[in-house]
């Protein structure tokens, strides 16, 4: 049996990734380059908000302190968040948003595929539902990255700049720690390092088609999933996210 505090920590990582990225993507609503993309981005964000409700709902249950998904999303401070740094990076232009989405989708789809065989049936169940959604996200974000990378000179340059900017935030997803080791031992989740080969295969193929150059450096910023060291961006995001709950605590909305 895995200790509940480790499991809680692991579930926060899953739920915070989708919470923060879902929030970021929702910022686009009403501002996308074309109506069809506006609608598609909202679908992606809606899927991630739904996944957040499931992951954080389960986290709250495992914690057993009477909190629920909303309490976890709206009343923790920056140091309590366990999302990857990648997902808290600002939207930038549409290219940066789609590049961030693709990099996360590629990792996320592989992870969810493994979680479907988790020894914890609750996790396997959520992963099965989320996995269908994320397969589509990956298909769409990969196609857009290819289209813009292999588009005009300007779109190519912007996509290369987005990739260069975001690449140092990718490696963190594949670095394991004590929490991961506990999950592996209990058959709950895979070793993050074991996902890297498949990830590299996907990004290498997509970037080749997109005529984009994969940066050589494997340097990785870290601290997001452990909560030790977030970027400055996260604090601004959660002060918007949490404002009503903080200003008027205890209300029903």
């Amino acid at each position: 049996m895995v200790r509940d505090d480790f499991l809680f920590e692991y579930l926060l990582r899953l739920g915070d990734n989708t919470l923060i990225l879902g929030h970021r993507v929702s910022e686009w609503c009403g501002h996308a380059p074309v109506l069809e993309e506006d609608i598609a981005l909202a679908n992606t964000a809606l899927d991630m908000i739904g996944q957040t409700q499931m992951w954080l709902g389960l986290a709250a249950e495992v914690e057993g302190k009477g909190r629920n998904a909303d309490a976890l999303a709206f009343t923790r401070d920056v140091w309590d968040f366990r999302n990857l740094l990648l997902v808290e990076m600002p939207n930038g232009d549409f290219g940066q948003t789609l590049m961030r989405q693709f990099l996360f989708d590629a990792f996320h789809s592989i992870l969810l595929g493994r979680l479907m065989t988790s020894s914890d049936t609750r996790i396997a169940g959520i992963a099965a539902k989320a996995s269908k959604e994320v397969s589509y996200h990956l298909e769409r974000s990969a196609e857009t990255v290819v289209g813009l990378g292999d588009g005009t000179e300007q779109s190519h340059e912007r996509m290369q700049a987005a990739l260069d900017y975001l690449w140092p935030y990718v490696g963190e997803a594949f670095i394991g720690d004590t929490v991961d080791a506990e999950m592996v031992a209990a058959g709950i989740a895979p070793d993050p390092a074991s996902l890297r080969a498949e990830f590299d295969e996907i990004v290498t193929r997509v970037f080749a088609e997109a005529t984009l150059k994969l940066p050589e450096s494997r340097f990785a910023h870290k601290g997001g999933k452990t909560g030790n060291f977030h970027t400055e961006h996260l604090g601004h995001l959660i002060s918007t996210l949490q404002w009503l709950q903080r200003a008027y605590p205890g209300c029903t909305w």
Binding site: S26, I39, L46
Partner: peptide, 29 residues
């Protein structure tokens, strides 16, 4: 989409956020 979109990132619960986003998305549709 804009006046309602103004509150998507500040919706007070996950459910309200999803409902509002789905609604504003409908307007785009």
């Amino acid at each position: 989409q804009l006046p309602e979109g103004n509150w998507i990132t500040r919706a007070p619960t996950l459910e309200r956020k999803a409902i509002l986003l789905a609604k504003v998305q409908d307007e785009a549709g």
